[in-house]
Design a protein around this nucleic acid. Structure first.
Lengths: 232, 232
DNA sequence: ACATGTATGACTGTTGACAGTCAAGCAAAG
DNA sequence: CTTTGCTTGACTGTCAACAGTCATACATGT
């Protein structure tokens, strides 16, 4: 019995299996654990215990930890012990101010793009995910951040997207730490809709103003919730 | 023979010795090597060879490499081999656009500070270092970046300062890669002076406009030098 | 010649173990 | 009761070695 020889298109369509190294696996795992609150802020991360529970050696774990440390999600004390970063209320303002600056740049760069018509549908698709599953907090948070990330990516500025990712980890950790009562998910679709509209209109001034309000609102809401949770 | 008992002030003045781990030492060493061009862009970094030449084990080296990778100074190919990042001409524009957005935020936040009078002398001091040793290229580059870093630090926004550091590594690598002919050091003092003046005056609009011009000028000069070097 | 095995070398991924350091607890000396 | 010294336990810093994979080059068969 003879099989038909594979043609080039078949070979190409097979693609390549994505190779996930152990380090990358536990890196993603730890990222999720921190940003979801599974690892509460301030938690001490003992290397031996963590490596055993994750099923990897300490060396492999340490490489992932260095990555997270550079991301700002972990902090080291004088003796080198790592713990999950606790974001203060002041830092929430800082984080969202930086996000505002970066996303405003993305907005401007998209407006300066020769052809804006391609990015609008992309953002509308991201908006769609925001409209779906309105009850689920984490899903809403994911969709929220995904929308803003897409905004940065669509600017075509890879350095910008990379910088944004650097602060987004902290942003997500802060939002999660504040708790699901933050009510960030209420009306999330409506709150993000004007961004796309202003972008489609090419209104740079309007977009920047709206983004500034959008970010300061979010920061204020989170800080308020943190204070409420602290006094309780 | 009796010594006088140490009083508290003496004890306090002793301070504490700063503990430098091997990982941090070689991290700084590699940082310098990359940003100074000692390790040329595209250079392949073999772990065994590097660890031997640095006098550390592979494990220790790898932790430092992960740090640099996250900083964007190193890139990994499909097989995990690391090499010094080569910044394209497009990326130069990207990097300086991000720097502009971040430093503009720093400018605004300093202007919003209750007491601006404290930061002005600090920046003037940084300007002073820029005026000194005008012949030395690397010293000028150091002073240049130090000035901009100080601007971000003085904003009081630690997250902003951290994000800036994230792109500054790439910026420095790009400048060094373009070569000392970039003439970035010419009139560096005069080119930075208006930033402090506008800041002292609290002129946000003027400051942002100047920073935008400052950054796009720098990017243009670097790209031009890269093209010149490439065609030669 | 061309395609297919097959050894070889180089490199990264990963691991387990050793060494040094700090904190906590306890005992002895003042 | 305070201080000093010692022991124990836990933790991070560091290392050398094993295992798996890929590219290269050579040899083999058609």
């Amino acid at each position: 019995m003879s099989m038909a020889p594979p043609n080039k298109s078949t070979l190409r369509s097979l693609g390549s299996i994505e190779l996930q190294t152990r380090r990358e696996l536990i890196l993603a795992r730890l990222r999720d654990a921190i940003s979801s609150g599974e690892l509460a802020p301030g938690t001490h991360l003992a290397e031996v215990e963590l490596s055993e529970s994750l099923g990897v050696s300490r060396g492999t774990l340490r490489e992932a930890l260095r990555h997270l440390q550079q991301d700002g999600l972990l902090t080291a004390d004088a003796r080198g012990r790592l713990s999950v970063r606790v974001v203060s209320e002041q830092e929430v303002d800082e984080i969202f101010a930086v996000r505002c600056a970066l996303e405003s740049l993305a907005f401007r760069q998209i407006c300066d793009l020769p052809d804006r018509s391609v990015v609008i549908p992309e953002l509308q698709a991201a908006l769609g995910h925001l409209k779906e599953n309105e009850g689920d907090f984490v899903a809403q948070l994911d969709a929220d951040l995904a929308f803003h990330r897409r905004l940065c990516e669509l600017s075509g500025n890879g350095t910008l997207a990379h910088s944004w990712q650097g602060v987004s980890g902290l942003a997500r950790a802060a939002i999660t730490a504040a708790g699901p009562q933050t009510a960030l998910h209420n009306m999330a679709y409506q709150r993000h809709l004007p961004i796309v509209s202003l972008l489609a209109a090419g209104d740079i001034e309007g977009g920047e103003a709206f983004l500034a309000q959008h970010m300061s609102d979010a920061a204020e809401r989170i800080v308020a919730q943190m204070q409420r949770a602290r006094s309780a």
